[in-house]
Amino acid sequence: MELLEKTDKIQEELLKNFEIKIDRGDAIEPRDKMPDGYRKHLIRQMSQHAHSEVIGMQPEGNWITRAPSLRAKQILLAKIQDEGGHGLYLYSAAETLGISRDEMIAQLHSGKAKYSNIFNYPALTWADIGAIGWLVDGAAIVNQVSLQRTSYGPYSRAMVRICKEESFHQRQGYEIMSKMMKGTKDQQGMAQDAMNRWWWPSLMMFGPHDSESPHTGDAFKWKIKRSSNDELRQKFIDKTVQQAEVIGLTIPDKDLKWNEAKGHYHHGPINWNEFYSVIGGGGPCNKQRMAHHIKVHNEGEWVRSAAKAYQEKKEKKLLHL
């Protein structure tokens, strides 16, 4: 009993020191003492972020072999490769918290870990590649820019690198959309159709309204999260509306209106029923995305075993020399 009280005291002390550091604006590093809740929150958020990058390779990968020019193919391939690289940076940052990539992948496969809902929608036409780059990456970047100031050092450093690299992603998507809007009637139709399908899911990427969002308390106190869902969503809308206008695309929201007093756009209601049903597995591609990831993981097992066996043999040989 006495011992328990003592550990409680130590824990309290640690938490206090940790919070002093956070308040001072110090970055937390892997070997620093941190509350369990902080570690857990980070592992959940960072692994979800990493999985999103990797699963996000699939909808765009769907168009690699059909990209309409050598330049388009090159750009798309480089972009998807970046997503893979970013997944890798994030896994690597999450691993500093004591979880292995193997465990994270197992959690993804078991459904314990999630990935961004947006990738449960299909990429149907080439214009979807434009919409994904412009809207989906655009929304992701707003969030990621804010996360550059997150309190966990490795996460923040990964975000800085990712933001630097992703600055071309949104541009490539917008370039596709703008080219198509300048093109034939068919192309314009495709572009508007993609806009109509991706706009609302992009807004949902920022998560539920602040009034509904769980977990935000600690995440804010610990400076993991630096801006609220609604703030980030508003930022995204405000900058995207103008870009749509420039190339002649219509935002599929009849309630969208500039609010002079607030200096922001007012948007119509988001269909949260859709959001929750897609999260719950009801999206058009949930099963397909997971099945693909699991299949690839399993099919690669013999390759990974071979590489390990080769290395073990070499080590053995060295020992017997």
């Binding site: 940076y89 690597s92 990964a158 990974r304 080769y310 290395q311």
Partner: peptide
Amino acid sequence: AGSVHASDKKM
């Protein structure tokens, strides 16, 4: 810069 996974030095 970060980390990578690999089974041997060359990889």
